[in-house]
Amino acid sequence: MTDTSFNSQTGTYQTEATFGDYFALLKPRVMTLVVFTAFVGLLAAPTPVHPFIGFCAILFIAIGGGASGALNMWWDADIDAVMKRTQRRPIPAGKVTGDEAFAIGMALSAFSVVFLGLATNWFAAGLLAFTIFFYVVVYTMWLKRWTPQNIVIGGAAGAFPPMIGWAVATGGVSVESVLMFCLTFMWTPPHFWALALFMRKDYDNADVPMLTVTHGRRATRVHILVYTILLAILAVAAGFTSIGGPIYLSVAVVLNVLFLRGAWQIWRRDEDMSEADNFLTERKFFKLSLLYLFAHFGAILVEAGLDKLGWGLWA
């Protein structure tokens, strides 16, 4: 008996999948963003949540996010097989079949939504269900292969977790949770377009209508600058609302100056300059974008902690 079999779907020999391969279907790195922003949304809310229920809520939100990742991999297996960045994912690598990914995605989606509803409230569960639907159906199945605005609109899916965290605590939506949504929503396009600039051939080969493919690389650089300016205005303005405060504002000002500088440098460069240093500025901007989001939400978390201790200076 052998531990390999031929997979007619991908044309590869399938090796025995390990537990880690199934876990990789859930996109663990994306999950960290989901967990962290949902956690901040939960703690920034004015209503306290029992620690164990809070822990379970974050876990179910993470599982829901992971489930949508598995469904995304099921649908996009053909694209993943072509793109260098995604070729080693479990389905194109021939370790997990598309049917398995679909089954895991559907089962975990139902599990996470039902358990979030039972553990907390059905509004939060409904929001999680909508997020999964939005990421899988609206973004993955519809927008991604159809419009260069795929990242802009699809970014909403990644922006929902802090709203779900807030809804877990309060049972509803408020200006603060919408602001946290907007922060992630506006951050997504420059983050992904920077990636598209230095992962040059990937999207071309996969025939995904990224902005770099449909409108050219010059237009993408302009778009990064414009979205970064809009993001900076929003991020700094949020400092004057109830989720902000002096610590948040200091972090936001420093990071937005750095982010704007990076976007400005990207805008000034042309392809020859970028290729000469192997897209160093674009890569630095992409790395900074990761720090940018974590630091902003970290600052919101600190402000919320200070408020709860009665040391908040803003509210």
Binding site: E16, T18, F19, L59, L118
Partner: peptide, 29 residues
């Protein structure tokens, strides 16, 4: 097959224990 799938089986076992712990914990709370 048992040795080949040992890691996977342990993982699934731990997951099931985790689910039981969560349901029990939520019920208690």
């Amino acid at each position: 097959l048992h040795t080949r799938r040992y890691g996977r089986n342990v993982g699934v076992g731990l997951l099931l224990v985790g689910v039981i712990a969560i349901v029990f914990g939520l019920t208690v709370v």
